[in-house]
Design a protein around this nucleic acid. Structure first.
Lengths: 150, 150
DNA sequence: TATATTTTTATGTATATACATTAAATTCAA
DNA sequence: TTGAATTTAATGTATATACATAAAAATATA
């Protein structure tokens, strides 16, 4: 795969910033491709997997839909419908919040936890396989992405 | 925005590789948000804009749909329908390839070129505004993304 | 307290994506 | 040279995304 210019046969970028935008979009597609392939047998999308992880991070405390939305990777996505899908698969529990009836309490189910556990090592192996960077380079990349967003 | 852990209130990543995946998805959403906002008044999606740039890069030579597909940022997207949209807006020309009737020759139109030109400086300014990295950091990021894909 | 404003979730809708399938044209091979 | 295999583009379909709007409940204000 290698250099962006060769991968997409484009070389007339406005400047390195524009190239970075294209590079991010292209690398995103590369990563999501592997994620989809791994998660598809389990009938999960990458964002659904992420929401399950968000819920597990609550250590048993219920979370509202808006709180999930804030933490989602795709800000404009739709937490409500996503939770609905996960509930239909039995991976989360959803019930009216007793203190505020507008809100909805969402929790990961035992089945959801089991699925996450089953996926953990597969994902770890997969990530290391297709991310062709050393650990220090990955840390550097994380630092730059954090800084990029300011 | 800053550090990923704070931005999405998640800190239990499997390892730096997994964090990089999440960071890429999140940063992608950040970037695409700005791209959408900029392009929306012109009724273009980021990938449509990219295809126009691919076509301009051909310097007047027609390109086939499969060739566009290969160069697109989103490998699984649908070049055929995207070209159809751009044609409906008068931004590209499309006609049967004379030497191979399966193929379709696509070219950017004068109107398409004019639109790209109009967008150029806006995009350049916008990119520099929301990518909060120095030029050397951006180059470093591009290098790491290229290397990531191997 | 009654009404307006805000918050929270759900829904509507157009577009985009992922992926399978179809249809037509070309190339390959018996 | 005829039929099989391949290539190319288009279409079908389910899901996801972007964004507007609606509906219900809570809070603020007159």
């Amino acid at each position: 795969m290698g250099k962006l210019e060769e991968a997409i046969q484009q070389k007339d970028f406005i400047d390195p910033y524009h190239k970075a935008v294209v590079n991010l979009l292209f690398t995103h597609s590369y990563v999501v491709g592997y994620q989809n392939a791994l998660l598809k047998p389990y009938d999960l999308s990458p964002e659904q997997y992420n929401v399950l992880r968000i819920l597990r991070g609550q250590n048993g405390n219920p979370t509202t839909v808006s709180s999930i939305q804030e933490r989602m990777l795709n800000k404009m996505s739709n937490a409500s419908r996503l939770v609905e899908k996960l509930k239909a698969k039995g991976l989360v529990l959803r019930e009216e919040c007793p203190t505020d009836r507008r809100q909805v309490d969402v929790m990961i189910s035992a089945e959801g936890l089991k699925l996450l556990e089953k996926l953990e090592t597969r994902i770890q192996d997969s990530n290391k396989y297709y991310i062709k960077l050393s650990e220090s380079e990955v840390r550097n990349l994380n630092m730059l992405l954090d800084k990029l967003r300011g």
